[in-house]
Design a binder for these strands. Structure first.
Length: 452
DNA sequence: CCCCCGGACTCAGAAAAATAGAT
DNA sequence: TATCTATTTTTCTGAGTCCGGGG
């Protein structure tokens, strides 16, 4: 085994996919009842590999799943920053030791060697109902956990990703009824019903997040259910002016025209309250989601974001794509992608006013021995560059505010893109980079006629 | 029934690293 | 070609969502 000599091993798995993996980064486990090869795990003993490979030759050669591990390093000590005005900012995040870490492996699987001599793992578990490989308590908030999961490219993650989009597609069959129902309830006599209706409307139309309650030791941010009176100002006749800090303390500012009954309902929810009071005092996320589940199996608030982003992309692509060469079609795609987000996920576009990154090389200190002429040319060039930057700044700022990457990764059903590429003979590599390609393997064999 | 909270997972932007492009 | 710069990709880990179980 030459590869073994080199410290590598080659693994064949289901579709003939092969990977040469450095032995030092391979670990074997029985996880979720599947024998698996995990890679990018450090410090595996040679003996362990030998033991497993002997076993696998007879039993498991064709059953082994080969998965990349997502995060395989513990978080190093640091000063905690957090996002926005975080109450715990500046707190020391202490070092994590093996004795802090609980490991999840198959029953009977060899226990991974503890990398620090004389120490041991906190606990070994054999739980095949969860996907995590290991966890430790977050030193900043000991009530919370940090997990080691498989990478996004794993079949396990792919499967749940697919399920997420299938659920969003199911919403397609219900959305008309749901919209009709909440529109009717804008004027319901029952306050709770009215609040549920308006909240659902905001989540659907503005892609607001559900908005769980937060503790006092977290940054003070809100979502739909936790909106405060001061966050939504009614401007007659029917404009709502939103201004609040959402996820990651990103400021959401938006003025939207709404249906008169919604406007009226908001005004009424505000009456008799002060600025810091809850706008939806009868609501929280569990009540809202419980209601949504009555309308469609498995429906929760976040499904609306996936649904609206994906359906918009699908519609725009089919509407906007005409003839042209590959490059033109790619432009159509990028445009559809961007517009889709502008329409659907406006939420994250309004950014907090952060300081711009400082201009590099602004000190202008020459590092080389330049003669005066060269120096002057340099100065002229630099000045021109600065001017160009000034001119481009606005355009760039515009593009930067579009969370393109995020939505491509999290909200747009990849099958829409793959099918469109097939229909229009655009190589998928023009749209998805290497990691997106790996993450969306499950979507690659979709029929060209697929529509979301 | 409701509420609280532990638990496990998705989603998110900043920073770092890699790569492409300009000079 | 070498080097510097701009852009893209990857990593990192914080911040949400949502579920389910117990009181």
């Amino acid at each position: 085994m030459a590869l073994r000599e080199m410290g590598l091993m080659e693994i064949n798995w289901s579709k003939g996919c092969r990977a040469k993996l450095p032995l030092s980064r391979v670990r074997f486990t029985h996880h979720l009842d599947h024998p698996m090869v995990l890679w990018q795990v450090t410090n595996t003993s040679r003996a362990l590999v030998d033991q497993f490979t002997r076993k696998s030759k007879s039993l498991y050669t064709f059953l082994i799943l080969c998965c990349r591990v997502g995060n395989f390093r513990v978080e190093p000590p640091a000063l905690f920053r957090g996002r926005g005005e975080h109450p715990k900012m500046g707190k020391l995040k202490k070092r994590i030791w093996p004795s802090d870490i609980t490991i999840n492996i198959g029953k009977g699987a060899p226990i991974p060697e503890c990398p620090i001599p004389g120490q041991r793992w906190k606990e070994i578990r054999h739980d095949n109902t969860v996907t995590w490989l290991a966890f430790w308590n977050d030193p900043i908030n000991p009530k919370e956990f940090k997990y080691v999961f498989l990478a996004a490219s794993s079949s396990l993650k792919g499967q749940s990703d697919k399920e997420k989009y299938e659920k969003a597609r199911l919403l397609k069959d219900y959305i008309q009824g749901i919209r009709a129902a909440y529109t009717k309830d804008f004027a319901s006599k029952d306050v709770t019903k009215r609040q549920i209706a308006v909240a659902t409307y905001l989540i659907d139309k503005l892609a607001l997040r559900a908005g769980n309650e937060k503790d006092d030791d977290e940054a003070d941010t809100v979502g739909c259910c936790t909106l405060k009176v001061e966050n939504v100002e009614p401007l007659p006749p029917n404009i709502l002016k939103f201004d609040f800090l959402g996820k990651d303390s990103i400021r959401y500012q938006n003025e939207v025209e709404v249906e008169p009954p919604v406007f009226k309902a908001i005004q009424q929810f505000r009456t008799g309250k002060s600025g810091g009071d809850d706008l939806f005092d009868e609501l929280d996320t569990s009540k809202l989601n419980a209601h949504l589940k009555e309308l469609m199996p498995g429906l929760t608030a976040k499904v609306f974001r996936t649904y609206n982003a994906s359906i918009t992309l699908d519609e725009m692509l089919s509407r906007e794509t005409k003839g042209g060469d590959v490059a033109e079609k790619v432009v159509v795609y990028q445009h559809a992608n961007k517009e889709g987000i502008l329409n659907g996920l406006k939420t994250d576009l309004a950014r907090s006013k952060k300081g711009k990154p400082p201009l590099k090389g602004a000190d202008g200190k020459p590092r080389k021995n330049l003669n005066p002429d060269a120096l002057e040319r340099k100065i002229v060039q630099t000045t021109a560059k600065v001017e160009k930057m000034e001119r481009d700044k606005e355009t760039k700022e515009d593009l930067k505010t579009v969370a393109l990457g995020t939505s491509k990764i999290n909200y747009l059903d990849p099958r829409i893109t793959v099918a469109w590429c097939k229909r229009h003979e655009v190589p998928i590599e023009k749209i998805f980079n290497k990691s997106l390609l790996a993450k969306f393997t499950w979507a690659m064999d979709i029929d060209p006629s697929f529509r979301f």
